[in-house]
């Protein structure tokens, strides 16, 4: 295989109303096996995917929000959340799940996966990627 590419999965849709969020997460999980340099972005309505306290019992759909906390186990440790998207929606990091990963090189120390970035910083992050997956 060629050298690892920088893969970015960009999530911009809210969960449940449409299937894009869930089927995007499926790509990220499958893609983890390919040993690329993976990052994930949540922006626009995509930030709603990460909110705490989702309970889908009443709508009879699968609640896939716990799966985000497993991303660290799949070595998906770079999760970008756009600050402006949160602010426009009256949200802060406290409204989102606390996503962590364990750093093997530092005796499995728990580290934050979420990186809060401004739109301008996100533009730089996106510019540095090789492949963008759009959902």
């Amino acid at each position: 295989m060629s050298d690892a590419k920088k893969f970015m999965y960009i999530n911009r849709k809210a969960p449940y109303g449409t299937i894009y969020a869930w089927e995007s997460l499926e790509v990220v999980l499958i893609g983890a096996a390919f040993e690329q340099d993976v990052s994930v972005t949540f922006m626009d309505d995509g930030v709603y995917q990460l909110t705490k306290g989702q309970d889908t019992t009443g709508i009879g759909m699968k609640n896939f929000s716990p799966t985000y906390s497993a991303l660290g186990d799949f070595e998906v440790t770079k999760i970008y959340v756009e600050k402006e998207s949160l602010e426009e929606r009256g949200l802060s990091l406290d409204d989102l799940q606390h996503l962590v990963w364990e750093d093997e090189d530092e005796d499995y120390a728990e580290k934050d996966s979420i990186r809060l970035v401004s739109r301008a910083e996100l533009a730089d992050v996106l510019a540095g990627q090789d492949v963008l997956f759009n959902f």
Binding site: I10, R12, L126, Q129, D130, V131, L132, N134, F135
Partner: peptide, 10 residues
């Protein structure tokens, strides 16, 4: 082809 990558804002 002229740009390194494509972003579809869907």
């Amino acid at each position: 082809e002229a740009n390194d990558k494509t972003q579809s804002w869907l």
